[in-house]
Amino acid sequence: MTRYWWKVLAVLILLYTIIAGLTIQIPMIGTNAESSRGLFFHVPMWIAMYTLFTISVVNSLLYLVKYDLKRDVAASSAANVGTFFGVLGFATGTLWATYTWGSTLPTDPKQMSTALALFIYMAYLVLRMSIQDIDKRARISAVFNVFAFALLIPLTYIIPRMVDSLHPGAGNTPGFSKDDTDHHMMMVFYPAMVGWALLGVWLYSLQMRYRKLELKNIFGNDRP
């Protein structure tokens, strides 16, 4: 119980957000109507992605300090699962946009710059596949990962907020601060972010442990 309590917590939080997210009373506003509930499921995908990419870049930096291959395995696993959540966030966003903004891919700065950021992370994964030598792969991809993260934050968080965007919190549209989002929605939204981030970390830990088992003959017999 001591080691997996956070997995249980993630499952309980997500059960709560699925049930409450679909059934609580929400204000019906404009073209959004019931689709505002997407807030409980679409945005947490990005929070999970940010969490995993942060884990990834921290492990890449630690790899560059000590050249410990386990850090490389951790960094690549986190980037892999993070990209997965990013794709889920993008797909849910395009569906939402189709029925509220009137187009699947409107020229929204946040949508476009996020697609760019995701492509950069996909390039990271492709770059890893293209290098056979395990140490060379670890070093080059760790450096690439640091630059990818350095681009991720301005591309998805800073630039879209400086220009007019259809997304909330940019230009002259209100953001998700406590004054302009319904109080009851926040009671589901905040736990949802935590829950999905924890589930993302769980998936990442599974992938990392599996890859460490695969590379057991390189790491030797010390505890992973």
């Binding site: 499952v11 059960l15 059934t23 769980w202 599974l206 599996y210």
Partner: peptide, 22 residues
């Protein structure tokens, strides 16, 4: 809601089993 809860619990069950196997 029931459909989603069943799907989610199914995925969780899958994850728990994978976790144990690893």
């Amino acid at each position: 809601v029931g459909v989603l809860v069943i799907i989610f619990l199914g995925i969780v069950l899958f994850l728990v089993r994978l976790d144990r196997k690893i």
